[in-house]
């Protein structure tokens, strides 16, 4: 399997455990409990689940913000473990993340230019001219006007802020983009804009996505394969088409049954 970009084997992440300084035991929470999967180059893996299913913890492990408690994770053939120094820089050049809350993910005291140029400077060691050039290009790519560069985050709407977040992730030209609920804080019309943009960027830049969401319809619209998570475990996985057409696991079925759907209802309502 030459074209596998991400390979995760029996990933576990525990929280808590140990004792407080007074000697009280802290209960252990198994946020991610033995999750295995792989992602091919250029495909989109959807991760779906309700709150507490461990999907965000998984995302944070994928980008190296959290270390797995057990299991093996490799990206582009290199193991992700105790990243530091040059290795960390190389890793973050290849793997970036888009966060859920578009406003909280931007430093309120920095201009868009500072936000976008930072990663280029640190991860690519680029000089001033190249930084400006890259930032200008990426801004155009995500559909923002150049005059936005000197503004501060609070001057933007949620949708625009999420585009800035996307630009920040893409400005170092990563291979893998992990998106943690990137559209759930947005209004539907804006959500559609961002989803369309994501599709478009993937075709143009050949990106690989791991897309995390609680919204089955969004996952289905964007992903090739899906991982259904519950309580830290994968309950079902497979190509979107198969999973959503013929869900095997009872939990997947109950998730699907719970989604209120416009068209279904219309079919029922229309005389």
């Amino acid at each position: 399997m030459v074209d596998v970009l991400v390979a995760a084997d029996a990933l576990v992440r525990l929280f808590g455990g140990g004792r407080t300084w007074l000697g009280r035991r802290v209960p252990v929470v198994r946020a991610v409990d033995g999750v295995s999967f792989w992602v091919r180059h250029g495909e989109t893996l959807g991760v779906v689940g309700e709150s507490g299913s461990g999907k965000s913890t998984l995302a944070r492990m994928l980008v190296g913000l959290l270390a797995p408690s057990a299991g093996h994770l490799s990206v582009a053939g290199r193991p992700v473990r105790g990243l530091a120094g040059v290795e960390a820089v190389r890793f973050h050049r290849a793997v970036q993340m888009v966060f859920q809350d578009p406003v909280s993910s931007l430093n309120p005291r920095k201009t868009v230019r500072q936000i976008l140029e930072g990663p280029v400077q640190v991860l690519l060691g680029a000089g001033r001219a190249e930084r400006r050039d890259r930032v200008a290009r990426i801004l155009d790519l995500v559909g923002l006007r150049p005059e936005f560069l000197e503004r501060y985050p609070h001057e933007f709407s949620g949708g625009q802020a999420q585009r800035i977040g996307l630009a920040r992730a893409l400005v170092v030209e990563p291979e893998l983009l992990v998106l943690d609920e990137p559209v759930s804080a947005l209004d539907v019309s804006i959500q559609a804009q961002v989803l369309t943009l994501l599709r478009d960027l993937q075709t143009r830049l050949g990106l690989t996505y791991v897309f995390i969401s609680h919204d089955l319809a969004v996952i289905e619209a964007l992903c090739d394969r899906v991982l259904v998570m519950r309580d830290g475990r994968v309950v079902e996985t497979g190509p979107c088409r198969t999973v959503f057409r013929a869900p095997q696991h009872a939990y997947t079925r109950s998730l699907m049954a719970a989604v209120p759907v416009v068209r279904q209802a219309i079919r029922v309502c229309t005389p």
Binding site: S189, Q193, L195, A217, F244, V261
Partner: peptide
């Protein structure tokens, strides 16, 4: 929902992803 008369309603309906119809293009309202 079947025959929206206002372009905003139409746009809103078009940009909601619908489970079971992944091929449907999401027509975003600009």
């Amino acid at each position: 929902f079947a025959t929206p008369r206002h372009p905003y309603t139409r746009g809103l309906l078009a940009c909601v992803p619908v489970l079971g119809q992944p091929e449907r293009a999401l027509d975003a309202i600009p």
